[in-house]
């Protein structure tokens, strides 16, 4: 009796701070180069009229967590306001020589690698402050990587709602089924952040996720 009363009061209390908090945080997480910033730019352009950050075919372009406040998304009669957080792609290895191969000078390549390691640590630290997360995956790549499993597992352990965006659906090699098979317990939506394919359905799912 006492325990359930305490639980009840706790719930009301939690409910209140949840409601009272100024803004919900929606995080974009995933491995490097999956299209997180491209998707962030599309969302920000559609609802805010500005960009989130720079994108590149060279991985680890985003090396600091970026946040845009008070984005109001509408779909049909439903709407939702949140802060959008773009994060550096999470990886277990970084080789500056890969950046040299991509055309960077040695110094720039080493600097990029150094910043990228710090960015990954920042991404992981920010996981705790998310209210919901979109995991952005490149749907042309095998989804069974330990990094993906670690991200999903950490969000599940914290009870943070997750939607998986199977990005780059415009590419021939895109395999939505494979992503769905890898994460059967989550909603998966195919999108092309670059070209906007299926973006209306994406907004619809996004609002459902956060309601």
């Amino acid at each position: 009796m006492f325990k359930s009363l305490k639980d009840f009061l706790n719930k009301i209390f939690l409910f209140n701070i949840f409601k009272g908090r100024s803004n919900l945080k929606l995080g974009l997480y995933g491995p490097p180069n999956s299209g997180k910033t491209t998707l962030a730019n599309r969302i920000c352009q559609d609802w805010l009229g500005e960009e989130m950050g720079t994108t590149s075919k060279v991985p680890h372009e985003t090396r600091n967590v970026q946040e845009k406040e008070k984005i109001n998304v509408k779909s049909g009669r439903k709407e939702m306001t949140f802060n959008l957080v773009d994060t550096p792609g999470i990886a277990t290895k970084i080789d500056y020589e890969d950046f040299i191969k991509a055309g960077l000078k040695k110094k720039e390549a080493q600097e990029r690698a150094k910043e990228a390691t710090k960015g990954i640590i920042e991404s992981i630290k920010w996981l705790d402050s998310m209210d919901a997360v979109i995991i952005v995956l490149d749907s042309t790549i095998d989804p069974y990587s330990q990094v993906n499993i670690t991200i999903v597992g950490n969000l599940a352990a914290r009870d943070i709602p997750v939607l998986i965006a199977a990005n780059k659906s415009d590419l021939k090699k895109s395999d939505l089924k494979k992503i769905e098979a890898a994460f059967p317990q989550y909603g998966v939506i195919g999108v092309s952040a670059e070209y906007g394919d299926n973006i209306e359905d994406f907004y619809d799912e996004l609002i459902k996720l956060m309601k």
């Binding site: 277990t92 390691t117 670690t150």
Partner: peptide
């Protein structure tokens, strides 16, 4: 999951010219 996250963080701290992760 927590330990995997820690392993990634610690790995990132140790990356240098020789150790690539």
């Amino acid at each position: 999951n927590k330990e995997e996250g820690m392993l990634i963080e610690r790995t990132m701290e140790e990356i240098d010219k020789k150790f690539k992760g």
